[in-house]
Write a protein that binds this DNA or RNA. Sequence first.
DNA 1: ATGACGTTGCTTCAACGA
Length: 257
Amino acid sequence: MRFATWNVNSVKARLPRLLDWLEHTAPDVVCLQETKVGEDGFPADEVGELGYRTAAYGQGRWNGVALLSRVGVEDVRRGFPGEPGFPDPEARAVSAVCDGIRFMSVYVPNGRTPDDPHYLYKLEWLRVLRDVLAADLAAGPLVVAGDFNVAPADADVWDPAVFAGSTHVTPPERAAIAALRDLGLTDVPARAMKGDHPFTYWDYRAGMFHQNKGMRIDHVYASADLAAMVTDAVVDREARKGKGPSDHAPVVVDLKR
DNA sequence: ATGACGTTGCTTCAACGA
């Protein structure tokens, strides 16, 4: 089985690239984030022509997540119980069972700055997510993948000094991610296609991608049974190249069951 | 140098992103 996660930064703007990438990468399941479209506007017909069924959760202009699967989509859950809002709940998590595995696509709140209320929202969102995932883990095989908006270690940003005092690297954010790992979720480390740093995000501005000044903030966490079956995981930096890319690259995981 | 770039929408600039 091959699955992937990708923050597409608008599924409408990225549709031609998404369809091309689906054809060439041929994943069985895809976790999408920042679709920026309501459920009615999601291009389900277009991905359907490639054999994918869709479970979308969207709200329009901001956020939005989805699952694409060509191995079935059952028991779809939009959001999760007790999910915090800002102030209202946002479209940041969707999960479904695909071929016996529960996949959850997550778009963790950004946090903006450490002194912003959005930062406390981010930490609370991750805290409640942890409790939800504990229950999901008890129920069976689980993959939680998406844009976590946290760089778990200093090596996950191109220059730690630049990020001092910023979100994405603070100890409370890193502790919130570590708490997910402590549940028994295993970080599936993706290799870089080029260079030593498997970054998944590069700012559009100032040629950051071409200088490889990026961040590793998109992650795949898997239950231990699945993590043991992983045969390869890679950041598809090819998808970040060229005209009209997302600012995130997909992470593609292969596992042999 | 606190900028740069890209997407969205009750657009003609502001909000947001990380």
